[in-house]
Simulated scan of single mutants.
Amino acid sequence: MKLGTASAAQGLGTGRNDYEFGVGLNDNIGTRIFPFAHLAYRIVGNPPGDNLQNIWTYNLGSSFEVTPRNIFTAMFSGAQSEQPGYSGPADLILAWNYNLTSAGSGIQLFVDKGLTNGSPDYGIGLGVQYVFS
């Protein structure tokens, strides 16, 4: 669920909640390769007067444990467009996780290559993950 907390009056969002339901398949090949695939249906919070449509979202990829601290992920991710007549997003994403603790807390650096007009051409990001154990 995504809570619609962005101001619709300021053009920052719809101000409506989105709900997403899906299924994911995760597996492991040996002890270091972890393929995954996810498919979901998103019910889009559609304010009066807008013509947003509900969409399917998906991703497919695999994570590779090089060492217990260094994990790489390659993923294709996409979705239908919420607006009729526009391209939906589709991206190739490469990520590196560095675990600072044995429980999995650490940092992530990722790069993103957009494949459609519905995605940015390129992206880069940095994240932090904390695992409660």
Rank of each mutant, 00 (worst) to 15 (best):
Q129N: 14
F72S: 08
R32L: 08
D91R: 01
G104W: 01
N97A: 14
D18Y: 02
S133V: 12
K113I: 00
L12T: 10
G61V: 03
A103N: 14
L126M: 13
G30R: 05
P68M: 11
G114V: 01
L115K: 00
G24I: 05
L126S: 08
T101G: 14
G22H: 11
G30C: 11
L94T: 01
Y122M: 07
A79Y: 02
T5S: 10
G123F: 02
L60M: 14
G78Y: 03
I55D: 02
D18V: 04
I43F: 14
S77T: 10
Q108H: 09
R32F: 06
P35G: 11
L52H: 02
D91F: 00
N99E: 10
P89C: 05
R69C: 06
S105V: 07
I55L: 09
G114D: 00
P47M: 04
L126C: 12
D121W: 01
T67Q: 03
S7T: 13
G45L: 08
D50N: 09
I107V: 15
G4V: 02
G106A: 07
T116G: 00
S102F: 10
P48A: 10
R16H: 12
G125A: 12
A79D: 00
Y98V: 09
G30P: 07
I43N: 12
N28Y: 12
I55V: 15
Y58M: 03
F76G: 02
P120D: 05
L100K: 08
D50L: 09
R42L: 12
P84M: 01
D112K: 00
N17C: 14
F72Y: 14
T116V: 06
T5K: 09
G30N: 03
A40L: 03
S87F: 01
F36N: 01
T57I: 09
V131S: 11
P68H: 06
S133T: 14
D112R: 03
F110S: 06
Y41A: 12
P84G: 12
E20R: 08
N51E: 09
P48Q: 13
Y98G: 07
G4Y: 03
V131D: 08
